[in-house]
Design a protein around this nucleic acid. Structure first.
Lengths: 130, 130
DNA sequence: TCTTGATCCTGTAGCCGCTACAGGATGCAT
DNA sequence: ATGCATCCTGTAGCGGCTACAGGATCAAGA
């Protein structure tokens, strides 16, 4: 089946402007065009877009999605390499979680010092002090 | 004491270019200048910069730092308002943590399906499928 | 056939919070 | 006088979109 960019967007869950952005950035190949210049996507194109959206939902950066996509479309589906990429990404997600949890602790600690008064906030004092 | 921008950067832990950026954006007021046009910071200016850096370390966005800073420099130190801002921020940090933990689960799950083989990666299959 | 409204096109600018230049002017020590 | 550090302004880039402006085209109804 052939689809307009709007249909492709609906089917894949990727916004129209974002699809064009991916094309500009070379994440997806440029699709065919109608005589009047409108983009035409086939089912494979839509699948690629859906794949990208799922990867983005998982927080993969564009560069790694590009790698995953080329592994996938070259039909190699090289598991070991996918494993490496997803492992690296998983590690970065876990690092972010650790950082945020640390931050949460510090923030909750500071926040806890705030009373209900209207002056001389201890949190501001701590942030300004030294 | 008076300080050059370089000294202010060292003392506050904020980069030189970042200080100028904060000035452009109106986060800090423009400092005095020497005859030849170089910026001069006093200790209060350095304290403000340090305050901003600490807030940034805590993940506060610039807009909220602006509010905190005005609360602080107006000498009102209104604790209740600081509480509101930090509460909102804390909530957004916690939301981020929840999102990331969810993401981590999904990712680890997918990642766990990858074997050591070189073809037909189940993770790619899942990402492409429908 | 005409008109309306939806959809599409390109190109550009903005978001956040910096960071990294380029290209030039000072300041300070020797 | 020389040389190097530091400073200045202005601009562009990062990632990953998003939001226009201003125009072309399409499909459906009257």
């Amino acid at each position: 089946m052939k689809h307009s960019i709007g249909e492709a967007a609906r089917l894949s869950g990727v916004g129209i402007e974002t699809i064009r952005y991916y094309e500009r950035e070379g994440v997806v190949p440029p699709p065919l065009r109608t005589g009047s210049g409108r983009r035409v996507y086939d089912d494979d194109g839509v699948s690629q877009l859906r794949f990208i959206r799922r990867c983005r939902d998982l927080g993969f950066p564009i560069g790694e999605i590009r790698m995953l996509l080329s592994l996938a479309t070259e039909r190699q589906r090289a598991c070991a390499e996918v494993r490496t990429i997803s492992e690296r990404h998983l590690e970065s997600v876990r690092r972010k979680i650790r950082d945020l949890v640390e931050l949460e602790t510090a923030l909750a600690d500071l926040h806890g010092q705030c009373g209900d008064g209207r002056r001389d906030c201890p949190m501001l004092g701590r942030l300004f002090g030294e």
